[in-house]
């Protein structure tokens, strides 16, 4: 069905369009980051925005991540809504102190008197054959920090809407963009009314199935869908849930699915050790232990530093590893 508001665009372009929409709607939305102005960002996500909104609203900052987040916090106290770009996932750590000790805690520290609506965008995950610190999945570090929200769009449509929702949110939000999916095109319905947009922290069932539930977010959603398609050829009917949000977690949607399928496989690029899959497994067994027909399976990165590019295919979950996990779940 053709709708007027449907635009086909790459995920990175969708973030750009979402940022533009937010900036047009609210003059207090600012972008801050390294090389985001004239260059448009190393992934070109902010392409053209400085030209259209000026240097006061799209700031090419000094090369200092703590500075980006710390000054963004200060500007938010003055009523601004800064959106920070961290150039690569592994470069967020210099800002870790500001994120964890200041941004996350400011509201609790002041018992609700100060809110700090700062968004921190960063490319996340691997798969682009890059050098060290460019392929990490640091979501758990932030999800484990109370006061932060962590979301991860997997599609152009979600990228467009979720960045606007993150900017509108009164809490600080870590916005993880799947870097290897920046160029994947999808349909974006840009004409949705506010009530028609899925809530920021609601998981979404992308494919219904009866035999097992595959849960993924960000870059592994495409992988989960591919695995489900491959499994279908072998006669297994898998349900795929896009988690969309890591903090908070929409456990309800996953539990509802698992009650029907009886089996759960969680797929992410972050290490499985103390990873989101572990949290989800624990919560699911609390909620629907007697619906589970098999142990929860987890597929993710290993508990080793992200390897050099030539090895990343061995580190990152792929269809075979997902199907192995599905097989184990179905065999139990």
């Amino acid at each position: 069905m053709e709708r007027a508001g449907i635009q086909r665009m790459a995920l990175g372009k969708a973030v750009n369009a979402g940022l533009r929409a937010a900036m047009e709607r609210d003059p207090r939305v600012l972008l801050m980051g390294e090389d985001i102005g004239k260059l448009g960002g190393v992934f070109r996500v902010t392409d053209g925005l400085q030209k259209d909104f000026g240097e006061d609203r799209v700031l090419d900052t000094p090369l200092a991540e703590a500075g980006i987040v710390g000054t963004a916090l200060g500007m938010s106290l003055r009523g601004y809504r800064p959106v920070c770009e961290i150039q690569f996932n592994g470069f967020v750590y210099p800002a870790f102190n500001q994120i964890v000790t200041q941004l996350a805690k400011m509201r609790a520290r002041t018992r609700g008197r100060l809110t700090v609506p700062v968004v921190i965008r960063m490319p996340s995950g691997g798969g682009i054959g890059s050098v060290e610190h460019h392929s990490e999945s640091p979501e758990v570090l932030f999800a484990h920090t109370a006061g932060l929200r962590v979301v991860a769009p997997s599609s152009a449509h979600d990228a467009y809407w979720m960045i606007q929702q993150a900017i509108a949110c009164a809490d600080p939000v870590l916005f993880l963009e799947p870097e290897r999916r920046y160029w994947e095109k999808g349909d974006v319905d840009v004409d949705l009314a506010p009530g028609e947009v899925a809530p920021l922290h609601r998981a979404r069932v992308l494919r219904t199935g009866t035999d097992a539930t595959l849960v993924a977010y960000g870059p592994t959603v495409r992988l989960a869908l591919d695995a489900a398609a491959a499994a279908a050829e072998d006669g297994s009917d898998l349900e795929v849930v896009d988690l969309r949000s890591i903090s908070p977690l929409d456990v309800d949607t996953v539990a509802e699915s698992v009650r029907r399928t009886g089996r759960l496989v969680v797929v992410h690029e972050a290490p499985t050790f103390h990873g989101p899959g572990a949290e989800l497994a624990a919560r699911i067994q609390e909620r629907c232990f007697y619906s589970l027909e098999a142990p929860v399976q987890r597929v993710g990165g290993f508990h080793v530093p992200f390897p050099a590019a030539r090895f990343e295919d061995h580190y990152l979950p792929d269809v075979d590893r997902v199907l192995d996990a599905v097989e184990a779940a179905l065999a139990a």
Partner: peptide, 11 residues
């Protein structure tokens, strides 16, 4: 200090 600078940038 960085939040202070950011506040001043807001000013």
């Amino acid at each position: 200090l960085l939040p202070a600078v950011g506040y001043a940038m807001g000013v």
